[in-house]
C-alpha cells in the first residue's frame, strides 16, 4: 500500500517537474528514478546486506543471536556434502547450458532466417513464448504422466517390445531434472538469440555469398559471431536460473539429487537461517563470478 502511495506521489511530482522547464526539470530524472531505486534498495540491496551480516551470526533451534562467528562458513565449506552439492549444481548448469544453447540457437536461426513473412515469424515466436508465461511447477509435474513408471513413454516402449520392463531412470533421476530444466529454460535462450539474429544486416550475408562463401561458412564466419551477444545474454539467464533452482531438482529427482539452493531451502525450513545465509553468500559469489565471466563477451547496455 505504501508503495502505491509513494508511486502516486512521485508520479504527480514528476508530472509537475516536467511541466516547468525551469530548475525543477533537472531534478525530474531523479524523481522518476526514485521509485525504482527505493524498491530495489529496500527489497534487494538491504536483504542481501542482511544476509551477509546474518551469515556470521550464531543460532540454535529457536532463534538467531547477533555475533561474529566464522563457524557457519567453516561448517559449510569444511563439509564434503557442500562440495559435492556444488559440483552437482555446476554439472546441471553445464549440461543444461550446452543443450539450451544448441537448441535455442537453431530454433532462433530457423525463425530468423528460414521463416519468410514477418507475421509467420511473430506467430511462431509467440507459440514458443506462451508456455514460458504459464506456471513452472505445472510444467514440471506435467512430465509425470509422460515419464513415470506407467507413463506414456514406458508403456509405448514396453508394448512395442523395445524394452522388456519399464525404464526406471526416466523419472526421479538426473535425466528427468535436466530434461525438465531444458523444457523450462530454453525460451530464455531463444528470445535473446532471435533478437540479435533479427538485427543482422542481411546485406552482410549476401556479401559473404557473393564472395563465394558456402552456407556453412556464412553460418560459421558471419551469423554465429554476430549472434554472440544474444548467446551471452541467454547464457546469463540459463546459468543463473539453473544455479538458483531447487524446485525442479527436488520434484524431478524425487529427492535423490541436490543443489546448493535446495540445501539452503532445507536449512530454511529448519529455521537455520545463519547457516542458510552462509550458503547464500557462497551461491551468490559463485553466480556473480559466472555472470562476470560471461559479461566479458558482451556489453548489455549496447545490446538493448
Amino acid at each position: 500500500m505504501t508503495l502505491a502511495m509513494e508511486q502516486s506521489v512521485s508520479t504527480a511530482s514528476a508530472a509537475v517537474a516536467r511541466s516547468r522547464p525551469s530548475a525543477l526539470s533537472r531534478f525530474a530524472p531523479y524523481l522518476q528514478a526514485s521509485p525504482l531505486a527505493l524498491i530495489l534498495g529496500g527489497f534487494l540491496l538491504l536483504p542481501i546486506l542482511m544476509i551477509a551480516v546474518v551469515s556470521f551470526w550464531d543460532y540454535d533451534f529457536a532463534a538467531m543471536y547477533p555475533d561474529f562467528l566464522l563457524t557457519n562458513y567453516t561448517d559449510t565449506l569444511g563439509s564434503w556434502v557442500t562440495w559435492k552439492t556444488c559440483l552437482n549444481t555446476l554439472k546441471f548448469a553445464a549440461i543444461v547450458w550446452a543443450l539450451t544453447l544448441a537448441i535455442g540457437f537453431w530454433m532462433a536461426y530457423f525463425l530468423a532466417f528460414h521463416v519468410r513473412t514477418a507475421a509467420m515469424q511473430m506467430a511462431l515466436f509467440l507459440i514458443c513464448t506462451v508456455p514460458f508465461l504459464t506456471s513452472n511447477i505445472i510444467r514440471m509435474i506435467s512430465w509425470i504422466p509422460v515419464l513415470g513408471r506407467n507413463g506414456l513413454v514406458n508403456s509405448t516402449l514396453v508394448q512395442l517390445g523395445i524394452v522388456p520392463a519399464p525404464i526406471e531412470w526416466l523419472l526421479y533421476s538426473d535425466f528427468a531434472v535436466v530434461l525438465a530444466m531444458v523444457h523450462l529454460y530454453t525460451l530464455f535462450m531463444v528470445t535473446p538469440i532471435f533478437n540479435t539474429l533479427m538485427r543482422i544486416d542481411r546485406s552482410l550475408i549476401e556479401a559473404a555469398r557473393d564472395a563465394g562463401a558456402s552456407g556453412w561458412q556464412v553460418l560459421w564466419n558471419v551469423v554465429i559471431p554476430l549472434a554472440k551477444p544474444g548467446m551471452a545474454i541467454g547464457s546469463i539467464f540459463v546459468v543463473t536460473l539453473v544455479m538458483a533452482d531447487f524446485s525442479t531438482v527436488q520434484v524431478m529427482s524425487g529427492g535423490q539429487s541436490a543443489s546448493v539452493a535446495l540445501m539452503m531451502k532445507n536449512q530454511m525450513s529448519l529455521l537455520q537461517y545463519p547457516a542458510a545465509a552462509a550458503n547464500a553468500v557462497v551461491l551468490l559469489a559463485l553466480v556473480l563470478l559466472m555472470v562476470a565471466g560471461i559479461l566479458r563477451f558482451v556489453d548489455i547496455r549496447k545490446e538493448l
Binding site: 530495489l40 543463473t240 538458483a244 553466480v287
Partner: peptide, 22 residues
Amino acid sequence: LFYLSVASLVIPSIVISLGIGV
C-alpha cells in the same frame, strides 16, 4: 541503478526470499 536492475535478474530467487524474510 541500471546495474542494480541487472543484478536483480541474476541474483538467485531463493537468496532474495531468505533476505527479505530475515
